[in-house]
């Protein structure tokens, strides 16, 4: 998505990204970013919390006019939960996951190989 924002911006359409993957977006470099420190999936605010969602989106609209240069990042003030455990659980690899992940990878490689042989591989 960062690449699309850069492309639009280069072509003269100002952009704002609302998102939660701060490191990935900052690594790329985008014009304007509203960061909400939530689990990936709800970049516009907590589900069913219309007031929070409106505030996040309004922050984004405000950033079009307040940003004076690229890589402008604003963080919203929200906290997902008192339990911060979600941060460690995302893509967590527990000892009991190791064999399952290895098997999953092997399956994916075999599938890709099959696709390649059938000439159905997606352009990369």
């Amino acid at each position: 998505m960062s690449l699309v924002a850069r492309h639009l911006e280069e072509a003269g359409i100002p952009t704002v990204i609302l998102g939660s993957a701060l490191d990935i977006v900052e690594h790329c470099g985008v014009p304007r970013f509203v960061f909400t420190d939530f689990p990936l999936g709800n970049p516009c605010g907590r589900p069913y919390d219309a007031d929070m969602q409106r505030a996040v989106v309004a922050t984004g609209l405000g950033l079009f006019e307040s940003a004076s240069g690229p890589r402008t990042v604003v963080q919203t003030p929200y906290r997902w939960s008192a339990d911060e455990g979600w941060r460690d659980r995302y893509m967590e690899i527990r000892p009991e996951d190791v064999a399952r992940l290895a098997a999953m990878g092997a399956e994916r490689r075999a599938f890709r190989q099959e696709m390649r042989e059938q000439g159905r591989v997606r352009a990369e």
Partner: peptide, 13 residues
């Protein structure tokens, strides 16, 4: 694991 996409406006406002 942490969330869901059941509320459209949480990811498509």
């Amino acid at each position: 694991r942490a969330t869901h996409l059941d509320d459209l406006n949480s990811y498509f406002p």
